[in-house]
Amino acid sequence: MRAFAALILLSAPVGAQGDWLLDPMVIEQCLATGLVEGCIGMVAQRCEQAEGAMARGLCLGAETAFWQGRADAALARLALREGDVQALSSRRGVDPVPALATIEASFTAYRDAACAWREGQWDGIHHGWEWADCRLRLTARHAWMLHETVEALP
C-alpha cells in the first residue's frame, strides 16, 4: 500500500493535486477562526469522503502540498531578512550562524525520522497512510510556525 500511495503521489504534480482535490479557501477560512490544530487534516478528510478510501494517500498528499506552499511563502519572506540577520550574527559573534537553509534541512531530517518511527508502529495497509498523515501534520505545523514567526517579526 505504501508503494501504491507513493506511486500516486509521485504521478501527479503538486500543483495539480491542489487544483482538483481541495479548495484552499476552506483551509484559509478555517485558519481565520484561530483553531489551527483543528484545521490540519480537515480538507484531506473531506477529500477522502468525496473520493473514497482508496484516495486517502492522494488526499493527504494534496493537503501536504498546500501546507508546503504556505511554508515556502513564509520562507520567502524570511529570506528577505536573512542577509541582515547573518550580518548581525557575525557582528555579535554568534556561532554557529543560524541560517534558513540549516533550519529547513534540519526540519526535513526531523520529519523523515519522525514519520519513519511512526510508520514503523503499523503493519499492513496502515503503514503508508500513517506515513502520509505524519508528513501532513508535521509539514502543517512547521508551516504555521514559520507563518507566526513572520507575523511576529519586529
Partner: peptide, 13 residues
C-alpha cells in the same frame, strides 16, 4: 538539531 537551529534563528530575529 531542528529545535536548536530553529530557536537560534528565531532569537536572532
Amino acid at each position: 538539531t531542528f529545535r536548536d537551529a530553529t530557536c537560534a534563528f528565531e532569537e536572532l530575529q
